[in-house]
Design a binder for these strands. Structure first.
Lengths: 248, 248
DNA sequence: CGTAAGTTTGATGTAGGTCAACGGCCGTGG
DNA sequence: CCACGGCCGTTGACCTACATCAAACTTACG
């Protein structure tokens, strides 16, 4: 399974038909100004694994850090288990998004990541990525931007948790999903949420009942059409207003 | 002020008497297995600025990203200003800690950072750091660990905000400060908080009244001795218990 | 068609927010 | 020296957004 990262860039034996060259998401996880030869080198080090079953673990908290991962299809959640055995979700990841950075600091993952649905992810061995970034400064710079972006989104989320009401939190989550669907060139108004109410409420620091009630209210006000995990945004303008303090 | 980062490692003209070789905090921000020559190279690129006044700005949200910063003495807070003009603090930084990573992704700072008290910080121009890390892999690896550590602490904090009660939040904050004082080889029990109640409450997603009341309660229970910004930890064990869900 | 898991809805409780008053500390100015 | 006002923190009375508890309903699957 381990392909040597030689300096050659022959397409190499196709352990898998999947590769970055043809990946619809590569413009998201790799928006690089690198040429085809360089893309081959990158592609060689990435392991395109078989599809993951729903709930299947990608990595576990406390195990040795080896790789970062990009979502290819489906979706992933990452979470802590507190000492008192309470799960706290720290992020949802959609196609084109990268996760696993938390493992670098201590050489072991600090969170556990599992697939929310049938998903496929690209495994990027970190040592190989480091080597490659030595010769390709473009890659190195891009990696730094990706990791900085993770910090930014975490801090945005801190602001959300610290200062927002239940309605503001939920509206922000829906809008975030909408934006990320748009980045995937998918409909930004007709969403299918890959996570349960329990997971939404855990992530937002609320209870399932509150999440359900807020969804109900947004539905009744014709801002969303909500049916279980199907959410349609009917009035994006008003939804955005709800995320501001002034917006009721 | 701009020192050329030559490959020579003469001690160079002392634009300032301060340097990494003699910094008490360098073991925190630079716990590197690098030799003296390499340390010179690193030291050459760092700008040791004059002391900052309380409330003085280090960088502002939206301005071009140039450098990351290490706290040398004093303390720093970083914060967003939401569109609705509400401030949200995202972090407090103590001596030996590094901030400013949020600027990398978009080439401009996403937060504003100001000194909480009279402080001094070391400015580390990011382009120079990138150059240096090309030749010193040890530096590169360390930078990645530092930035990953920022992600970890942000995610720990997300778990805190999402799942904890007012008392758990405040107890965790005090213990975090205690640990970080210990890392500075300072008393972990007698703390002086560099931020106001307003700033604590903003950071923790509470109100000043609640923060005050919880402090009052911890004081009454002989867990803390609280007098304005002076906090003494009287019973660390019980304080730690309070941070768990089971611990009432 | 029975059981279980997820979601919704209603009734009630409470942690923490809001509003208001007060007290200590400090700098300025008479 | 004291009087003053502004800022910060504390304390009390009250209120509300959300949690908790409880029950029904919906869907998936053996």
């Amino acid at each position: 399974m381990d392909t040597n990262s030689t300096t050659q860039h022959t397409p190499s034996q196709p352990t898998n038909l999947i590769n970055c060259q043809t990946c619809r998401m590569s413009n998201l996880c790799l928006p690089l100004a690198i040429d085809a030869q360089e893309l081959y080198k990158l592609d060689e080090l990435i392991r395109h694994s078989n599809p993951l079953q729903p709930r299947e673990t990608i990595f576990s908290s406390g195990t040795p850090f080896t790789s970062i991962y990009a979502v290819r299809s489906g979706s992933v959640k990452s979470f802590f288990i507190d000492p008192d055995n309470h799960e706290q979700i720290t992020g949802f990841y959609l196609p084109g998004e990268i996760f696993g950075w938390d493992g670098i600091a201590e050489d072991q993952y600090q969170t556990t990541a599992i697939a929310l649905e049938t998903s496929s992810v690209c495994e990027i061995p970190y040592d190989k990525l480091e080597q490659l970034s030595d010769t390709l400064p473009e890659i190195k710079r891009h990696v730094m931007k990706l990791i900085s972006r993770e910090i930014n989104s975490d801090q945005q989320f801190i602001a959300l948790l610290a200062g927002f009401s239940a309605q503001q939190k939920l509206a922000s989550l829906i809008l975030s999903f909408s934006d990320r669907m748009a980045r995937q060139k998918r409909s930004p108004t007709r969403l299918w949420l890959p996570m349960s109410r329990i997971e939404i409420s855990n992530y937002l620091g609320l209870t399932i009942e509150t999440v359900s009630r807020v969804f109900g209210r947004l539905h009744k006000n014709n801002i969303l059409k909500v049916n279980k995990r199907e959410v349609e945004i009917l009035d994006k303008k008003r939804l955005e207003n709800l995320t501001t303090t002034s917006g009721n």
